[in-house]
């Protein structure tokens, strides 16, 4: 295995625009660099679920539309009844891959490294919800969408994983690379009205 050179963000071309992405009440930041694994386990295979949970430092969330943060600092996003996105710091990727693979070996599962497949944008601030409402059909009201709510849906014309991380509110928007420049441009445009003065 090679010592990996520094990865390049799919949003590298927008670095200048993102660096200036401060508006009144909302900020947008590139948080693309991280380890990500798509994990498929049959939810009836309790042993496999338990084994994965032990490595990850917390149970894979079984409630739809939720995310969980583990004691190991992994963020586990529910994607479907037998599908999760496991994310963590970029430098822990290789080790996580090895240990998970080791524990699940021999059980029917699929662990797929998708670290480089997505861009992640952090949108935060009192205006963040309103920015998202311009392109997301779902109910983002705090009564319906809370911290650790995590959905796959459409934002503008891109499919995203939308994860609310705190009450500010802050969101992490994970989008496939090829759509990331479109989506970031869209978000910057939607924030523009708060950037006066």
């Amino acid at each position: 295995m090679a010592e990996a050179p520094a990865p390049r963000s799919p949003l590298a071309g927008l670095a200048d625009a993102l660096a200036g992405a401060r508006a009144d009440g909302v900020t947008l930041t590139d948080r693309s660099a991280r380890a990500r694994f798509n994990l498929r386990i049959d939810p009836k295979d309790v042993e496999a679920l338990t084994a994965a949970g032990a490595i990850l430092g917390g149970s894979l969330p079984r409630t739809p539309n939720t995310a969980a943060t583990t004691v190991n600092g992994k963020i586990l996003l529910w994607l479907g009844p037998d599908e999760w996105l496991v994310t963590g710091p970029a430098e822990e990727g290789a080790q996580l891959d090895d240990t998970l693979r080791g524990r699940l070996d021999g059980r029917h599962h699929a662990l797929t490294d998708v670290s480089a497949m997505y861009a992640t944008l952090a949108l935060s601030g009192p205006r963040a919800r309103e920015v998202l409402m311009k392109g997301c059909r779902l109910d983002l009201h705090p009564r319906a969408f809370k911290p650790n709510t995590c959905v796959q849906t459409a934002l503008a014309k891109a499919n995203v994983i939308l994860h609310q991380t705190d009450d500010t509110p802050s969101y992490e928007i994970t989008v496939r690379n090829s759509f990331s420049v479109y989506l970031a441009t869209w978000l910057l445009d939607a924030m523009a009205e708060y950037r006066q003065g």
């Binding site: 739809p64 539309n65 479907g80 009844p81 059909r137 779902l138 959905v151 796959q152 849906t153 459409a154």
Partner: peptide
């Protein structure tokens, strides 16, 4: 059945 009420355009 999993994600709850979603707009038709998601399906």
């Amino acid at each position: 059945p999993w994600c709850g009420a979603r707009p038709e355009s998601e399906f």
